[in-house]
Structure formats: C-alpha cells, structure tokens
Design a protein around this nucleic acid. Structure first.
Lengths: 149, 149
DNA sequence: CTGAATATTTCAGGTTGTCAAATAACCGGG
DNA sequence: CCCGGTTATTTGACAACCTGAAATATTCAG
C-alpha cells in the first residue's frame, strides 16, 4: 500500500532491544511512582487503596458499584475500604432516593481536605519531572497520550 | 553558566498544568502496567509479589535480606512469599557455608522456566508501544532515562 | 568467653482481594 | 397486583501481603 516501510507486526514476536529498554524504564517509573504514592498516603495514615478511593470520590460521589469498576476490583472489596474511611469520617454513604438499592459514597469536607493535602505531597510531580525542559515535557506528554490512546 | 533560562526551582510551588498533565498520564501508564503485570502473573498462577520475587531470583540467587531490600519490604514478609514459591518447587533455599545465618534463595530450573514464560506474556511490551515509531521510542527512552537519572 | 550485632523465622494483627451466599430493591409480564 | 429474574450491596470464609515485636541461631569484636 504505502511506499514507506510499515511498522512490522510484532504479534507473537520477541520485542526488539529498544522496546525492551523502554519497558524496563517504564517498570522503574512505575516502581518509583508506586513507592511515592504509597508513602505520601502513609503520611496521611492512609493505605494506597484508601488514597485511590478517596481521590476518586474527591472528584464526584459514586455508587459502590462504580467505585469497584474504577478501582478494578470486586464490589465486596469496596465495602471494606469505604467502611474504614467512613469510620474515620473521610467518606459517607448517602442513600439514593431514585433507587434505594444503591448507596452513593461521597467524600466529606474533611475527606476532601485530606485528599487535597495528599495530592500536594505527591513529590513525584516535581522531582523526576523537574529535570526536564518544557519542550521535553510536551514531547513526553504527547508520546504518553499516543501510547494510551 | 548557561545563557538560556534555567529551569525554575519548583520546590514548594504548585506544579504547572503541563506537569500535572504528565503526572496524570504517568498515573494511567502505571495503572495499566500494574494491571497487565498482575494478570500476566495470574495466568501462571502467581501473585504479583511472587512474580516480582521470582523474576529477581531469575537474575541471580539472593539472600533473604537482599530480597527484602530489592522488594522494599520487611524481611519477615519475604519469608512467606519464598515459602509459597518453595512449596511449588519454583524456588529453593540454599545454605550459605561462609555464613550459616543467611539462607540464599535461588530459582529452580522450573522457576526459571516459569519466569521466562511470564516475561514473554507481558503484553505491555507490545501493545501500547507498538503504535510508536522507532524515533518516538528512542525519544521516550532518552526522556525516561533523564527522568530517572 | 561474653556481649553486641546480624539473618532469619515466628507470631499477632490489620488491609486487600476473591468468591459464594444472603438481603433488599427494581422491573417487566401475566 | 404478584412473580420471577435481575441488580446493588453486604456478609462470611479464606488466602495473600505487609508490618512490628519477639525468638532463635550465628557471627564478630574486644
């Protein structure tokens, strides 16, 4: 079809060295990000799962079912995490008048405050990225978007 | 030193929108990578922690203490993970003649085989990266290296 | 030889996660 | 209206991960 060489179909093939290098690097970024997120959460006496759930609720209240979908886990698991956050007054369950089966979890004012503070203590936003020029960050942003899209 | 504007010191400052975008994107990459790793491990009846430990031992045998350092967890935690891998014949504990306190964990032949198979089933190496040109991947690799270095 | 330090394990306890079963509420067809 | 099927949430049992403190065995310095 095209006169230029099309990207080879790697399906079932061992990736080339360049790809392996990038995967290795992404692995390190993932490890650092995770570590950073976990310790930022710990500074607020939250576990990673609790921090993720609270951050979600900080954007908008969500039924338990939706929470499970966003967190990619079983609804029965969400029950416990919300239980613990609710016991600390960071989240509350609200009834849904239009469908009394569903319970909507919402962050309390204190919960939103904690989430904001947590967001700001995420040093990963500054340290590794601070060394990049604006041009590099733009390039990185666009490449990541293409990877994910 | 340089005539170009030096990167501003972001310490204690709220990051700009571009940085926030990149952080958000990295978060998504992290989520996908994790998901992918976990499901690849599950295909081999391994948990994520077991897969990480086995992959480490596939490079070289390590004392329990070193394993804990690499996995960034307490040594007492490693005991259980190695226990479960050893029960399945993927790992074995070897005595260290020069210091009888330490036990060196080593992957068995079967363990190495499983780790190899797991490595190859990591689709993350192909799918999101396959859409990038070689030039983009080179650029991504160099940027990630600068971020981590 | 004694005491401090190190490597590993054990134990108790908390969190995350799954799956199956129970409960409650919705909904459409008769 | 009622019934059966579906959906949302919870509960209970169980496994894995993880931490912290205590126990054990061994090393090492003085």
């Amino acid at each position: 079809m095209a006169s230029t060489t099309p990207p080879p179909d790697m399906t079932g093939t061992r990736p080339d060295q360049l790809t392996l290098d990038v995967v290795e690097l992404i692995g390190e970024v993932v490890a650092r990000f995770h570590e950073d997120y976990e310790s930022a959460a710990a500074e607020h006496a939250l576990t990673g799962a609790q921090a993720r759930l609270l951050s979600l609720l900080c954007l908008e209240p969500l039924p338990m079912r939706r929470l499970a979908q966003q967190l990619k886990c079983e609804p029965s698991n969400v029950t416990g995490i919300v239980d613990r956050l609710e016991a600390r007054g960071l989240v509350e369950r609200q009834p849904n008048p239009s469908d009394r089966r569903v319970k909507v979890a919402a962050a309390t004012a204190e919960g939103r405050q904690v989430a904001r503070s947590l967001r700001e203590s995420l040093r990963f936003a500054r340290e590794p990225l601070a060394g990049l020029s604006e041009e590099e960050r733009v390039s990185l942003r666009d490449t990541l978007r293409r990877m994910l899209g």
